[in-house]
């Protein structure tokens, strides 16, 4: 491991994205546009927007960073750059953390735009602070990146990688409490929801929604999200094989 190589890798990934302005625009603007859409869908029910809109602030970064990372990693595999990297002094964790930090930076920008739009233009209302919501959103993005890094190992084409999104992401969205409260789901679905990391990401945001100050439960949720990220990164490292057939 080397901090220098990790940061250079972050710089390299950010450079690649910098050369792709359309992707940047999509990442930064789409969440805000969807929030506007939600705001007017629930025009007569601002309390529902306060709940759903807030949850979406945690779900967007998870989805977009999951997709961007799994495609980026798949490209590294299919173009041979990954194999070449692994013959250099680069450590596997340098690569994974390099990606993680780069997408955290991107997620911070995305979260800044989306939360600003939600709070200032769309009147989203929470007890807790905007800063805490942004912090949690960035954590969700890094989780999405880590999960994307890991699942990309199981895809051999872009088609497959994109199809992992409904497989890996959709169940988490359905079960995290966004469309129906978790407490009212039948037992085995609650159990499934309990082991999915996005559940805790969303729960942390709901804590911010209801309480002015950080609660113990919020910290527990954040700790679980961080723990799941570390596990996904380690699993991802295990899928980076130096030797192949």
């Amino acid at each position: 491991m080397s901090l220098r190589i990790t940061l250079r890798t972050t710089g390299r990934v950010l450079n690649q994205i910098r050369h792709d302005p359309r992707t940047i625009a999509l990442i930064l603007l789409v969440p805000s546009l969807l929030l506007v859409l939600l705001r007017y869908i629930f025009d007569s029910q601002p309390a529902i927007f306060d709940r759903i809109g807030l949850m979406m602030l945690g779900i967007f970064p998870f989805i977009s960073m999951f997709l961007v990372t799994s495609i980026a990693m798949l490209r590294e595999r299919t173009t041979g750059t990954l194999e070449r990297m692994l013959t250099t002094p680069l450590h596997k964790l340098d690569l994974l953390l390099g990606y993680g930090i780069a997408f955290a930076v991107l997620a911070a920008l995305q979260a800044t735009v989306a939360t600003s739009v939600a709070y200032h233009l769309l009147d989203l209302d929470t007890e807790g602070s905007l800063g805490t919501v942004m912090g949690i959103a960035i954590g969700d993005a890094v989780l999405g990146s880590a999960v994307g890094l890991f699942t990309s190992a199981f895809a051999t084409s872009e088609f497959q990688a994109v199809q992992f999104m409904p497989v890996v992401v959709a169940p988490q969205i359905l079960l995290c409490g966004l469309i129906w409260p978790r407490e009212e789901m039948i037992g085995w679905l609650q159990a499934a929801s309990d082991v999915l990391p996005l559940t805790y990401a969303v729960d942390a945001l709901l804590e911010v929604s209801a309480h002015t100050d950080a609660t113990d439960q919020m910290w527990r949720d954040v700790a679980i999200v961080v723990g799941a990220t570390v596990v996904a990164l380690l699993l991802g490292a295990a899928t980076l094989r130096r030797r192949s057939g």
Binding site: R4, R8, R12, Q16, H19, G80, T81, T87, T88
Partner: peptide, 30 residues
């Protein structure tokens, strides 16, 4: 790994970076 340089048969560098950015990234690895 820091004593071997390997050129793969199919060019394996980052298509969405400039030549110089690629070279500088590889230089930072070594």
């Amino acid at each position: 790994r820091r004593r071997i340089g390997y050129l793969t048969q199919d060019p394996s560098i980052y298509a969405d970076l400039t030549v110089r950015e690629n070279a500088r990234y590889f230089a930072s690895l070594y």
